[in-house]
Amino acid sequence: MHPTAQEFTEQMRETHGFEAAVEEFPEGTKTAADAAAAIGCDVAQIVKSIVMRVGDETVVVLTSGSNRVDETKLAAEFDSDPSTVRSANASEVKRATGWSIGGVPPTCHATTCPVLADPTFETFDDIWAAAGTPEAVFRLTPADLHHLADPRVVDVFE
């Protein structure tokens, strides 16, 4: 297992008592479509961890692979001007979450930034999220997601 994916599994165990069964795909799971094809699931079952900046705040938005973040709705969720909403850059993602773009899991972040979740996940028994690298994912349930990430479930999607 890649050392970063191993680090993720150890953090999950230590922080949450959760045994993440990580699967690695050498061909990569960089996009939701790539991940769904590798796993053999619907693209909507893929948890994309989209790291955004809303004003001076970093926010992790857990988006179904079939959805996109609506920046105006996200701004409204934080009573912010839509012009202050943007994608976090690579260094901001790493600083806030401790993980690199493409491998950000829904939990075990370096800071206590707010986490929002897509209500679409509730329609599935199993969902899949990044496990520290662009090639590693783990399976969890919507209930696991709530327990592990404690997200605010909101509709901030197009």
Rank of each mutant, 00 (worst) to 15 (best):
M1A: 14
P3G: 00
P3I: 04
P3F: 09
E7Q: 14
E7R: 15
T9E: 12
E10I: 05
M12R: 03
M12H: 04
T15D: 10
H16M: 01
G17D: 09
E23L: 12
E24I: 07
E24N: 08
E27R: 14
K30R: 15
K30Q: 10
T31L: 05
A32G: 07
G40D: 08
V43M: 07
A44K: 15
A44I: 08
I46S: 05
V47E: 01
K48D: 05
I50T: 11
V51T: 03
M52I: 01
R53P: 02
V54L: 03
V54N: 04
G55I: 03
E57T: 13
V60Q: 10
V61I: 04
V61C: 04
V61S: 01
S66M: 09
N67E: 14
R68P: 07
D70L: 12
D70T: 11
D70Q: 13
D70Y: 14
T72P: 00
K73N: 06
K73Y: 10
L74A: 04
A76S: 13
E77S: 10
E77Y: 09
F78D: 02
F78C: 06
D81I: 00
S83P: 01
V85R: 05
R86P: 05
S87W: 07
E92L: 03
E92S: 04
V93S: 01
A96D: 06
W99L: 00
G102V: 02
G102Q: 07
P106T: 00
P106K: 01
T107I: 00
C108Y: 04
C108E: 09
H109Y: 04
C113Y: 09
C113D: 03
C113T: 12
V115M: 08
L116G: 00
A117V: 01
A117P: 03
T120P: 02
F121Y: 11
F121L: 08
D125C: 02
D126R: 11
I127M: 08
W128K: 00
A130F: 06
A130E: 04
T133G: 06
T133V: 05
V137F: 12
R139Y: 02
R139K: 15
A143K: 14
A143R: 15
L145G: 07
H146W: 05
A149N: 11
A149R: 11
P151K: 09
P151V: 08
P151M: 11
R152Q: 14
R152Y: 06
R152F: 06
V156M: 04
E158V: 15
